[in-house]
């Protein structure tokens, strides 16, 4: 939650996006299509003679077309500083993947005339949540867009969407079969055989020296030596960690924590920290092993916070 609010604060602090110029200046062809589609018969938009004699003194464009001029087009992409796009990404990542527009208020300062080139810029006004709604839990995201011509504001819009996690659809569990499977050698197979039976095995040489990750030669170089293993207690502390956000990793739902744990036996080992979020993990956090069974062949070592 705090992650979303902080991201919103950062995005809002960036203020207005750079003004993005409309693809075309205000023009009759687009006006014709729009009034036809909406059934707006006002001749001030289409009849030059009528328009000349009207209060406008000439053809004007319907004010409600403000947004039309700066739409991205069929193959367009959002500007990279678009605050709505940025906020949507944050919420997508947090599992709020669906979106519905809830309300919009437009204010028109004046009519636009043909040939005027409109530019739009947007800022993030607020992000409120999480709220329980009929659609599911979600966040209300409000932006304000200003359209201007040569710096003069001509129209404004408050636009609000609900970005939500569909009700009854808990965030889908990642497919464990999608996990990147380990390459196993003769030197490491004892480790994976151990996880399958719930043992965290550490390679041991000469009855004492522990080594992880394991290898085929004793740390002292004795080629005659043969290793065995000890079964670790399974307890240790976080030595370092990563909170992974991007890009997607097969079998994982971001953000997730991977921790490098120093086991009580003295070796370090990597695993996902299953039950601590980005705000809860710290270097020194006591953890214990937990085994994540993927299938008959593969069980991954992972960590849980030690109570």
């Amino acid at each position: 939650m705090r992650g979303i609010e902080e991201a919103a604060k950062h995005i809002a602090a960036q203020g207005e996006s750079r003004a993005r110029l409309a693809r075309d200046p205000v023009n009759q062809a687009m006006v014709n299509n729009w009034v036809e589609a909406l059934g707006d018969g006002n001749p001030a938009y289409t009849d030059p003679e009528f328009a000349r004699g009207s209060v406008h003194g000439g053809l004007v464009a319907p004010p409600a077309m403000a947004q039309v001029w700066t739409m991205n087009g069929l193959h367009g992409t959002r500007a990279d500083d678009d605050p709505l796009g940025a906020m949507m990404s944050v919420l997508d990542e947090a599992g709020y993947t669906s979106v519905v527009a809830t309300d919009s208020e437009q204010t028109y300062h004046r009519y636009l005339r043909h040939g005027e080139h409109v530019a739009a810029s947007t800022r993030l006004e607020g992000v409120v949540g999480p709220k329980r709604t009929a659609l599911g839990e979600g966040w209300f995201v409000t932006t304000r867009t200003t359209w201007s011509v040569a710096g003069e504001p001509v129209a404004e819009m408050m636009f609000r969407v609900l970005k939500f996690r569909p009700a009854g659809e808990p965030a889908p569990a990642p497919d464990p079969a999608a996990v990147l499977r380990p390459v196993i050698s003769r030197d490491t197979e004892f480790f994976w055989a151990g996880t399958r039976v719930g043992e965290l095995r550490i390679q041991r040489w000469g009855g004492g020296t522990l080594r992880h990750p394991p290898g085929p030669v004793a740390p002292n170089g004795d080629l005659a030596a043969k290793p065995d293993h000890v079964v670790a207690n399974g307890t240790g502390t976080v030595y370092s960690y990563v909170v992974h956000h991007h890009p997607k990793v097969p079998g994982k739902r971001p953000p997730f924590v991977v921790a490098l744990v120093e086991l009580d036996e003295g070796v370090r080992m990597l695993g996902e920290l299953l039950d601590a979020g980005p705000e809860d993990v710290y270097i020194g956090l006591p953890v214990e092993v937990s085994f994540v069974r993927v299938d008959d062949e593969l069980t991954l070592p992972a960590w849980k916070v030690r109570s």
């Binding site: 996990v179 990147l180 499977r181 380990p182 390459v183 196993i184 050698s185 030197d187 490491t188 992880h212 990750p213 370092s240 960690y241 990563v242 992974h244 991007h246 890009p247 990793v249 097969p250 079998g251 994982k252 997730f256 991977v258 490098l260 080992m269 990597l270 695993g271 996902e272 593969l298 991954l300 070592p301 992972a302």
Partner: peptide, 22 residues
């Protein structure tokens, strides 16, 4: 590949993430 078995399956799977740990 054998080395990678001790981090890719655990989700540490991009250059950025491997640097982030350090």
């Amino acid at each position: 590949g054998v080395d990678n078995a001790f981090h890719y399956p655990m989700g540490l799977a991009t250059p950025a993430a491997t640097v982030a740990m350090v």
